[in-house]
Amino acid sequence: MYNLIWADLFKLQKSTVVKVMFGITTISALAMAIIAYLIPQGTLDGSMIGIGFMFSDINVISILGAVIAGVYICGDFDNKTIHDAIAIGNSRAFVIISKTIVFSSTLGFILLPYVIITGLGLSTGYVFSMGSVAIGFLHMLTSTDPTTVLVSGIGKILAVMLTLMIVYVAQLSICVPLAFVLKKPVPVVAIYYGLSILSGQLMVLSAKYPVFNRFFASTPYGGNHVFVTLDTGIGDILGTIAVSLLFIVIMIAVTYILFRKSEIK
């Protein structure tokens, strides 16, 4: 499995797609922060919130994350790298786990610009705002009181950022079974984007129905998992990490069940 991970990292290191996506997230993160800064200044009109949200991490990663799953996992079915990995004696479980690890690492890599720019934004002490649409890193950036940054300390900031990254990885881990089953990038991206829109609607629904809310909160799409900030308690952060990791494990298990005996064409 170790060899599979290194081989995939070597391949991704040479991948133009990953470099392009990193460029996109860098530009998007910058645009998000600038818009979130200029709106409360009054330089930009409040109607720019929609544009600002378009550049936000939740929106960008929902598309790019699924594209990565499509290109990276489905692409390996196309170029027969997965076939070769199995034909040379790797277990299907190892193939799935190694793909999930490298997929998660790649997501972490393309999220780095949001992490860095959010960190830089918080360190300036400026006020950021994107109305009520802020989620994830944008929410962290816009809802944090500049005075609490110093009090919280660098450790808490990093912990919150890492937690948000884990939440995103968990949300996108549903692309792993999708990619292993569908083997085509376009349906994976389309289905995941549909799911991300659906999860937004379900969040509204969960606010109305407490029973559904409890169920939905046990997934990385529900609860306050994408609203973790410096004000969130350690217990809640650990709960979010636990829910996310458990969800990733479930997705790996589901993929294994579906892929264990499937024909690899």
Binding site: A7, F10, K14, N79, T81, A85, A87
Partner: peptide
């Protein structure tokens, strides 16, 4: 199957890598 080498239907090669890089990828994988 670790003692096996195969090329079934189409070769297992990554299009955006050179020949040497493709061999490196498979060398690392093994």
């Amino acid at each position: 199957r670790k003692r096996l080498g195969c090329m079934i239907e189409y070769p297992s090669i990554v299009p955006n890598l050179t020949a040497k890089e493709n061999l490196k990828l498979h060398r690392i994988m093994r």
